[in-house]
């Protein structure tokens, strides 16, 4: 019996991009160092990195909009420029802009034609997707009258219009208000339920934490870490927050925590998990009343801070 291995939905092999900048004196600028990445089918994959990390560059390479300096990539096991691949992917560019002389419905009809959606199914599909992103009521309005958030929704609509297997979203939450972000999160969740692969870039960590099965962290074009969020964050040491009553901080507490201060009649300190016992002892000895002990979950933020060298963080 041969063994079957799940085929990666997205795979890159030493993908590399160097831009040339400058008009007279051309200088190379490395935007993506050799990138090796595999995203499994059905995964929601977060592509994280601060501004200028190379996220958009990667996505453009995967969409065949640019040619890599070196390396290659495959989507669904095929060359990225293969029309068969293109028929099965959806793409939301960052800060999308669309033909503003069209109405939302016309635009989606046009895109449906280009994606090869059957003529019979077209208008039904367009109506459904407009409903799904909450643009049903403005379907007949020209896009030049749309707000930024509405355009972002149109962008998401066109990315999922043709029921693609793999969806690429470049910063899908940007430009949206809290309710809009919530909706996009729900939408990504539902795409996951439908078994789609979602690859999305963001520099907002909480979005990734809430949604992703796995994330990759990119910095200055270099892959700094990849894995399940729990694994990544557990590599950062856990901490605990201790709160007590009585407006004093016992001297022993100062020794345990660098982070302690008074909050009115209460006081608060953050200590390492392994020093919790010592901290509680210190409070008991000073006759102070313990109010709460909560573990501070290590977040991607901590991961970022820890993974990017202090100099890099300071430089930002």
């Amino acid at each position: 019996m041969p063994t079957f291995v799940a085929m990666p939905a997205i795979e890159t092999f030493g993908l590399e991009k160097t831009y040339t900048v400058g008009f007279w004196r051309k200088r190379p600028r490395c935007a993506l160092r050799p990138l090796n990445l595999a995203v499994e089918e059905g995964e929601v994959f977060g592509y994280l990195g601060p501004n200028g990390a190379g996220k958009t560059t990667t996505l453009k390479l995967l969409m065949g909009l640019m040619f890599p300096t070196a390396g290659s990539a495959k989507i669904l096991g095929r060359e990225v420029n293969d029309p068969q691949v293109k028929a099965q992917i959806g793409f939301l560019p960052e800060q999308p802009y669309f033909y503003d002389y069209l109405t939302a419905r016309e635009l989606l009809e046009y895109y449906a034609q280009l994606s090869g959606v059957e003529a019979r199914a077209r208008s039904r599909r367009v109506a459904a997707v407009l409903e799904r992103v909450g643009l049903r009521d403005v379907a007949g309005v020209q896009l030049r009258k749309f707000s930024k958030g509405m355009l972002q929704r149109v962008g998401i609509a066109q990315a999922i219009l043709h029921d693609p297997k793999v969806v690429f979203l470049d910063e899908p939450m940007s430009g949206l208000d809290p309710i809009g972000r919530r909706e996009v999160r729900d939408l990504i969740e539902s795409l996951k339920q439908e078994g789609k692969t979602v690859f999305f870039s963001t520099h907002i960590l909480s979005d990734a934490e809430a949604l992703c099965d796995r994330v990759a962290v990119l910095h200055q074009g270099e892959l700094r870490g990849i894995g399940v969020i729990a694994d990544l964050t557990s590599s950062v040491r856990g901490k605990v927050e201790v709160i007590w009553q009585g407006g004093v901080i016992p001297p022993a507490m100062h020794a345990l925590s660098a982070e302690c201060h008074l909050i009115g009649a209460m006081a608060r300190a953050v200590v390492g998990e392994n020093q919790l016992d010592a901290a509680v002892d210190a409070l008991r000895r000073a006759n102070l009343k313990l109010v709460s002990v909560t573990p501070v979950r290590a977040s991607l933020e901590d991961y970022f801070v820890e993974k990017l060298s202090p100099a890099e963080v300071a430089a930002r």
């Binding site: 969409m63 028929a87 992917i89 793409f91 802009y97 669309f98 962008g155 066109q158």
Partner: peptide
């Protein structure tokens, strides 16, 4: 310039 091409060329359009 307006990047409208991105959403065209990411479709099966040569």
């Amino acid at each position: 310039e307006k990047k409208t091409l991105y959403t065209i060329l990411s479709r099966p359009v040569r």
